[in-house]
Nucleic acid binder design. Structure first.
Lengths: 332, 332
DNA sequence: TTGAAAGCGGTACCAT
DNA sequence: ATGGTACCGCTTTCAA
C-alpha cells in the first residue's frame, strides 16, 4: 500500500496525497478528509525509507555510551532518549566499549546511517592523543558530549563542574578535622582527571599536603575495592576520611571500613541508586544528569534548527547528604 | 557524492558500482579494484535511506523497555544491543513507560519506521486485558519477548522459570526451619504473578499455610519498603524470613531488619549490582539474562532467516548465594 | 562481465 | 487547490 494506491482510491494525484501526508495548508478540507479517510480505511503507513530519501533525514540521533549496563550511563541514556522523543527524534543506541577502535567504528557506522546528530555520553569519549574521529564526525553533523569535554569545531559539551565538587568536599572534611583524606578512583578519563585535580586543589586550599599514598587507583568492582582498602587499613596507612570517584567504589571502601570496625566519613560520586541502597546510606555528589541531559538535547535541537548555541555549558553539582557524611557548609 | 559520481569517475555504469558495493562476484577483479579505489579516494558513503528503499530494510530492530534507568532492563538492553550488533543490526531504543497508551504508541512508531523486528524486554508488555497492539505488530514483523510471555502468532518468548525459583527458595527456607516467610513484591506483571504463584506453590509443597498478612505489596523504593517492613515488625507481625521480587525491595527490607535488630534470611531477585553492594551482601536469584538475551537475539536471527524456531524457550534460574541466605540443597 | 533502464515510495517544483 | 513530473540514490532485471 503506497501513495499511488491512496491517490487512486481517493481520486486525486500523488502530489495531493503527499500534501495531505505533510499537512500542507493548500489542500481543500474536503479533499483532505477524503484522502485521510482512505488512508485510515486501508491502514496506510508511509514508507519511512522513502521519506528519509526525500527529506534526507529520518529524524534519528545516535546515542553512544561505552556501556549501558553501567547504572550511570543507563540513567543518562534514559533521560536523553525521553527528551529526544519529545523533540521527535528516534534514538539509535550504540554501546561502544572502551577501546578506541570500537568507538571509531560506531562513529562511522552512525555517520553511514545518516543520523541527524550524535550524543556521546561520558568523558570516556575524549581520547588522550587522537580525537580525529570525533572531529571528522563533527564536520558532518553536530556532536554533543554529555559530561565530557572535547573542544573541536562542531562539538558541543554539557558538563558538570566536578572538580569544584571534589574540592568543596575536601574543604568540608578539613573543617571537620579530617586531614588525611583517601581518594579512590578508577579511570583517568577527562572526568576522572578533573576529580583528581579537584582533590589536589582542595588539599592545597586547605593547606594540606598531597600524599601520594592517599591517592589510590582501583578497578571498578566492589570486591576489588573492598580488598584494596582493607589491605590499606591493615598495613597501617593512616587516613580519616574517604572520597571516591564513583558510588560503587565508595561502597567497596565502606565495606572495608565496616569489616575493620573503623568509622569515618565516606563520600561517593554520581548519586546513583547504589548510594541509597548502601548501609549506611552513602552521601554522594550528584552530577545533575536530570538537568544536564534535557538541556543537552534542547541545545541539540537548537543547533539543528540553525540557532546559535553556546559550545559549552557547565552546571554545578550538588552533594546529596546521607548517613556517611554531612558537610558543615555555612549557607553554601 | 553518490553512485553516479563514483560511476563517472571510475568509467563504469552505476550498475557496476552497485555490484561492487554489494560484493557481487560478477565483477572483474580489475574493475572492482578501480571502483573501490575511487570510493576510497573520495570517501564515498552509500546513502542508507536509498539502500533502505531498495532492500526494504535498514537492518534495525526496535528494543522496547518500560524504563532503561532500571538496572535490570539496562543490563538486558546492553546484552541485546551487543548481540544484535554482532548480527549486523542496529538498535532503535524506545523507553515506553508503564501505561498502555505509551506502549501502543511506540509499537506503532516502530512499525512505521520499518524495523525488521522488535524485542520487548520485560513482562510489563503483557497487558491483562488487551494485547491486540502486540498481535497487530506481530502480524507484520517478528516480535520477541524477553522475560515475558504472550502467546500469539508471530510472538516468540524467551523466559526464565521464576516460579520454580521462588518455590525452591521457600522449600530451602522451610528445611531451615523458617516457616513464616514474608514475600514482598511490587508489580503484578506476568513475572510478578509467576513469582507469587511460586511462593504459594512452595508453601503448599512444604505443607505450610498461606497467610495473606505475609504477602505484602510495596512501591519499588528503598525508603518505602524500609518503612513498610519496619512497621510490620513493630506491629508484631510474625515472620522469620524475607523473600522479595526484586533486589531493591530486599534491600529495603534488610534495612528495616537491621534497624529493628532482627536477623533472618533475606533473598532478593535479579542478582543485580545492588545485591553485591548491599551490606550484608544479598543472596539473589539470577534470572540468567546473560544467556537469555543472546539466545533470544539468535532466535530472532533464525526467524528472520526463515528458519524454524520454537515459539517459547524457558531456562532455569539459579540462586546466587551471598551473606543473607544460603540454601541447604543436597545436590539440587 | 557490463550497461541501460525500470522500479522502490516518497518530495517538491512548476503549471494550470 | 490540484496535477504532472523530475528527482532523491540505490537495487535489480534484462540485454548485450
Amino acid at each position: 500500500m503506497n501513495i499511488y494506491d491512496i491517490a487512486k482510491r481517493s481520486g486525486v494525484s500523488i502530489a495531493t496525497v503527499s500534501r495531505v501526508l505533510n499537512g500542507s495548508p493548500s489542500v481543500s478540507e474536503e479533499t483532505r478528509d477524503r484522502v485521510l479517510a482512505v488512508m485510515q480505511k486501508v491502514g496506510y503507513i508511509p514508507n519511512a525509507f522513502a521519506r528519509g530519501l526525500g527529506f534526507n533525514t529520518m529524524r534519528m540521533v545516535g546515542i553512544l555510551c561505552t556501556d549501558i549496563s553501567d547504572i550511570f550511563y543507563a540513567k543518562a541514556v534514559s533521560l536523553v532518549e525521553s527528551k529526544l522523543r519529545q523533540n521527535g527524534f528516534d534514538s539509535l543506541l550504540c554501546c561502544t566499549g572502551n577501546d578506541i577502535e570500537g568507538k571509531k567504528k560506531y562513529l562511522n557506522l552512525l555517520l553511514a546511517k545518516h543520523v541527524d546528530a550524535m550524543i556521546l555520553i561520558g568523558s570516556a569519549f575524549r581520547e588522550s592523543i587522537d580525537n580525529s574521529h570525533i572531529e571528522k564526525a563533527a564536520k558532518q553533523i553536530p556532536v554533543m558530549i554529555i559530561n565530557g569535554l572535547v573542544e573541536l569545531p562542531g562539538v558541543y559539551c554539557a558538563l558538570c563542574d566536578e572538580r569544584s565538587a571534589v574540592a568543596n568536599n575536601v574543604a568540608s572534611l578539613h573543617r571537620q578535622g579530617r586531614d588525611r583524606i583517601l581518594y579512590v578512583y578508577d579511570t583517568l578519563t577527562y572526568s576522572g582527571c578533573e576529580k583528581i585535580e579537584g582533590y589536589k586543589e582542595g588539599l592545597k586550599c586547605a593547606g594540606l599536603p598531597f600524599r601520594k599514598e592517599l591517592l589510590i587507583h582501583v578497578k571498578k568492582s566492589v570486591k576489588d575495592v573492598h580488598k584494596t582498602v582493607r589491605d590499606l587499613l591493615r598495613s597501617g596507612v593512616n587516613f580519616s576520611a574517604v572520597m571516591a570517584s564513583e558510588d560503587l567504589i565508595a561502597i567497596g571502601a565502606l565495606k572495608a571500613l565496616q569489616e575493620e570496625d573503623r568509622d569515618m566519613p565516606v563520600v561517593g560520586f554520581n548519586n546513583s541508586v547504589l548510594a541509597e541502597c548502601s548501609s549506611p546510606s552513602l552521601s554522594s555528589v550528584d552530577n545533575m544528569l536530570d538537568t544536564l541531559c534535557p538541556t543537552a538535547v534542547d541545545m541539540l535541537g537548537n543547533i539543528l534548527a540553525g540557532k546559535n548555541v553556546p559550545k559549552k555549558i557547565i552546571i554545578s553539582p550538588k552533594l546529596v547528604e546521607r548517613e556517611t557524611f554531612r558537610a558543615d557548609d555555612r549557607g553554601g
